[in-house]
Design a protein around this nucleic acid. Structure first.
Length: 261
DNA sequence: ATGGCCCGTAGAACGGGA
């Protein structure tokens, strides 16, 4: 079974990429961020025709998240909820569902814009409320995966040119401290459970020929509860997706999971 | 050289992304 997260940067533009990718490599659970579509414009029919059920939560212009589930392998998402009950927030950044016995939380963490911006304060507050909400869920023993665009590069090795990013949004100490607190709840970074190629990233700026120079950051993550550790057999970044025509600036992250014993 | 690109909403530039 495979679970992926991908920031599509507009599902309207990236729908052909998504359908082509899933046609080539069926993935059982797909978490999407930055769909940038209101719910009435969500391409439900095209996704269902590809064999997926889908739950989504969108708004005009910004944000928007979705969870796709491959019908023949994992069925429909159940107990779907949107947002964080501990955080009144109009921005559509969270959707959760139970799939194949796993509580799947798809998250689009705020970018923060700049450390001196009010958006940065919102980001830290958003993360604090996320931690408050997830703590009891993780402690309850439910197998859980928090998949999404965290907009945090956890360590220096997750940044190609750390000296250029020092103290900036995405790498600042308060953001990294929130990431560490998520791990402290009892979550594991799937990517770091395995040997990985040096300088593996998930996002590259559209400018500066950044992808060609592999000038990137690792900011998209799948964290899983400890009780899933023995079932996770791989975590890879689908770098190929960033090479396509008119790509998203993010590449998907794909986790392979054994079925429950 | 502190911006370069891409997207949505516009219906021209601009905010936002990261």
């Amino acid at each position: 079974m495979k679970l992926a997260t991908w920031n599509v940067n507009s599902l309207k533009i990236r729908l052909p990429h998504l359908l082509d990718w899933l046609g080539q490599q069926p993935i059982d659970i797909v978490c999407l961020q930055e769909t940038k579509l209101t719910d009435d414009k969500f391409p439900r029919a095209a996704i269902e025709d590809a064999g997926y059920a889908v739950a989504f939560s969108g708004q005009p212009t910004y944000n928007g998240v979705a969870i796709l589930t491959r019908r023949e392998t994992v069925g429909e998402p159940t107990d779907v909820s949107t947002g964080n009950p501990l955080h009144a927030d109009d921005q559509r950044r969270l959707i959760s569902a139970t799939v194949a016995g796993i509580r799947v939380i798809c998250a689009y963490v705020p970018n923060g814009q700049a450390v001196d911006s009010p958006k940065y304060g919102y980001k830290l507050e958003w993360l604090d409320r996320l931690i408050d909400w997830l703590g009891p869920q993780v402690a309850s023993g439910t197998p859980l995966a928090l998949a999404g665009d965290y907009n945090i590069a956890p360590e220096e090795r997750d940044v190609r040119y750390p000296e250029q990013w020092a103290g900036e949004v995405l790498v600042s100490e308060p953001e990294r401290e929130r990431f560490t607190r998520l791990l402290g709840l009892g979550l594991l970074d799937s990517f770091r459970l395995f040997e990985q190629p040096e300088k593996t990233f998930t996002w590259w700026d559209y400018r500066k020929m950044a992808f060609r120079r592999n000038d990137g950051l690792r900011i998209d993550h799948v964290l899983v509860t400890e009780n899933l550790r023995s079932r996770v057999s791989a975590c890879v970044v689908e770098r190929e997706m960033r090479k396509r025509e008119q790509p998203s600036d993010h590449a998907p992250v794909v986790v392979t999971l054994a079925p429950a014993a």
